[in-house]
Computed example of a mutant assay.
Amino acid sequence: MRIGVYPGTFDPITLGHMDIIRRGAKLVDRLVIGVTTNISKTPMFEDDERIAMVEREVQGIEGDIRVVGFNSLLMDFATREGATVIVRGLRAVADFEYEYQMAGMNQQLNNRVETAFLMADVSLQPIASRLVKEIAIYGGEIHKFVTPAVRDAVEARIAERGLRRGDP
């Protein structure tokens, strides 16, 4: 069985992430979506909230898809899951430089796991979770970047934490 891991913080999961999940699931027998926390970021949603959000969003996508939280080195997680490939999405040249470096480091840690890069759909390339949150905090519309359920969750979190910025 060919198992792939698609890791990310998914804070929140965007239409760009969903595109990579749909396409990545076609390349492997099982796609494990690894939800983690990047220690250099402060997430809007807690780990369990992000896991539940991703689980809800991937329902109905064809293929064997599992959502698993992890808090370890990616290559240790991939080994635990039995993965032979890491699936990564690329939006732009800036992504490539970072991802290329990470792929090289990961290969040094475990050369039995390959990294496969998928280009995001052209219409979804500018979408980034960080920008979605920033737009929402300033009262902008995010419906073009996330599903309605994710939009509602983001807006509720902003209201709950009093994060709204900008002029009324």
Rank of each mutant, 00 (worst) to 15 (best):
R2E: 13
I3P: 13
I3A: 07
V5L: 04
P7N: 12
P7D: 10
T9W: 11
F10V: 01
D11N: 13
L15K: 10
M18C: 02
I20A: 01
I20L: 03
K26Y: 01
K26F: 00
L27E: 01
L27F: 05
V28N: 01
D29C: 03
V32K: 04
I33Q: 07
G34K: 13
N38W: 15
S40A: 15
T42P: 04
T42A: 13
T42N: 08
M44R: 07
F45M: 08
F45C: 06
D47I: 13
A52F: 10
M53V: 05
V54I: 05
V54D: 07
V54Q: 06
R56L: 07
Q59A: 08
Q59V: 02
G60D: 00
G63D: 04
I65G: 03
R66E: 14
V67K: 04
G69T: 12
S72M: 10
L73G: 10
M75R: 05
A78K: 08
R80T: 06
R80P: 02
R80C: 11
E81F: 07
A83R: 02
L90P: 06
A94N: 10
D95T: 11
D95E: 10
F96S: 03
E99R: 12
E99S: 11
Q101K: 14
Q101I: 15
M102G: 11
A103C: 12
A103K: 08
A103D: 10
M105K: 10
M105Y: 14
M105Q: 10
L109I: 15
L109A: 09
R112T: 04
R112M: 11
T115H: 14
A116W: 09
F117R: 01
L118K: 00
V122S: 15
V122W: 07
S123M: 11
Q125I: 04
L131R: 13
V132K: 12
K133H: 07
A136M: 08
A136K: 11
I137N: 13
G140W: 03
G140Y: 06
E141I: 04
I142E: 06
H143C: 02
P148C: 00
V150I: 01
D152P: 05
A153E: 04
A153G: 03
V154Y: 07
A156E: 01
R161K: 08
R161P: 03
R164V: 10
R165N: 11
D167Q: 12
D167I: 15
D167A: 12
